[in-house]
Design a protein around this nucleic acid. Structure first.
Lengths: 137, 137, 137, 137
DNA sequence: GTGGTCTAGACCACC
DNA sequence: GTGGTCTAGACCACG
């Protein structure tokens, strides 16, 4: 078996988000969803560089930011490790999976209704916006 | 009655997106969802500047980008107007509203399950990611 | 009069401390001693680069770290500004100055006793060490 | 009696100094203050490794640097020994102790004035800086 | 091999 | 003009 990596990064150049920020967000999300657990090792800077086309400094910058956030800890000569789960336990995995399933079912319906990715994103943005103006932070 | 604005911009400094890009995205989405119709007038640069804290040049830049995309047209001394709806007819308004309602109901459930904004974003990102790897564009 | 800069950086290559860290420490100390007040502007990255021989990225890195610490805020196109004083008001300026005078008098005596810089540093390190083992943090 | 160690190392991860450099500095200072005398034996690499969390190679590196400086001498299979006191005789022990006492009294006063470690360090840095600009080396 | 620092120099976003 | 991102590539500290 081939040592499946703890997380696989991807970059979306169209997103407008700086690369380092995309990496940071992906780690944050993975931790939040329990895909990364405390003690897990992030791929080494050099691994990331071979996986996606990116400069080592950019990866390093992302890892440094995560460390500043207290989510991760870089240890000299050993690697970078997840420290803690972001906001307490939160809902259990089962519940998360149900929500995820419901969401993907919704996306399915949206696509069948003729929406493309841009349309779906528009709906998400609109709803997120309403939600976040109701309850900030 | 008093000229309710066609669209109200907001800036999220934590988003990591450059300001001009946030404006562009908001117009794109509003057009997509039919909130902005061909012929509608965008708020003037000066209006935007008084509504949110932003430099006029930045608003200008956003409108220029939208014009380059063919979505709006700036007319000297008159204002900036929506030209067309982005991707053909798409689903009708009723359908869009139903999807929107379903989505917001889902978010409600997610919040009741104990997820905060970050958690919801994490789920959205995960699902969007899966969807977009299935059908890229 | 020539716009005396808010702070003048210096680098000591023999210190063993990375350059960005020396800058960070100098700002931290200046804030702590009240030499930099909230609202004060740090020299621009480009100014620092001309003042001391250093790469802009390194200065930028220092300013970013300070921003992460909440001591400073970089504003697009305007500059970098001190946000707050580090740990409450602390002792008043008069007291600080008296302590500073006493300390420099002590250093004077140490030098007259035949100690060079290295010797003084050794004494400081020894005393600091004892102090910090008594009362950590 | 049980061979009280000639010097006890400590590492401060927040110092920003590389580990090997912290060891070197501590030996240098101890020699300067007469805490280590010619002929004294440094703790063996293995002893250091059990006392503080550090890699043997790093301790080795520090001892090698000290040897290169002519301060110590590693003798195969026997240990590492202090060779000489760094900068000539310097002030006698009594004087050093008096200065040390005065310094610690000053730190006591500073602490009573409400300064924490960071504040004290800030004052020390400021005074050292003034002193070293007067008399460089 | 790992993470960490630094330089050089290009280009972008914003005022 | 300001800060911010990214690449390329060298070198260091550590295990």
């Amino acid at each position: 078996m081939g040592d499946e990596p703890s997380i696989r990064f991807r970059l979306d150049p169209r997103s407008g988000l700086p690369a380092y920020r995309q990496l940071v967000d992906q780690v944050r999300h993975a931790i939040r969803l329990g895909l990364l657990q405390p003690g897990d090792q992030l791929p080494s800077v050099r691994e990331v560089v071979t996986q996606i086309t990116i400069n080592p400094n950019t990866v390093h910058r992302a890892y440094r930011d995560l460390e500043g956030e207290g989510l991760v800890r870089g240890e000299q000569g050993r690697g970078t490790f997840v420290l803690r789960t972001k906001a307490g336990p939160g809902p259990d995995t089962a519940l998360l999976e149900r929500l995820q399933d419901e969401l993907e079912a919704w996306m399915e319906r949206a696509r069948e209704a003729g929406l493309d990715m841009g349309g779906i994103e528009a709906l998400l943005a609109a709803s997120l916006d309403r939600l976040s103006t109701k309850e900030p932070a």
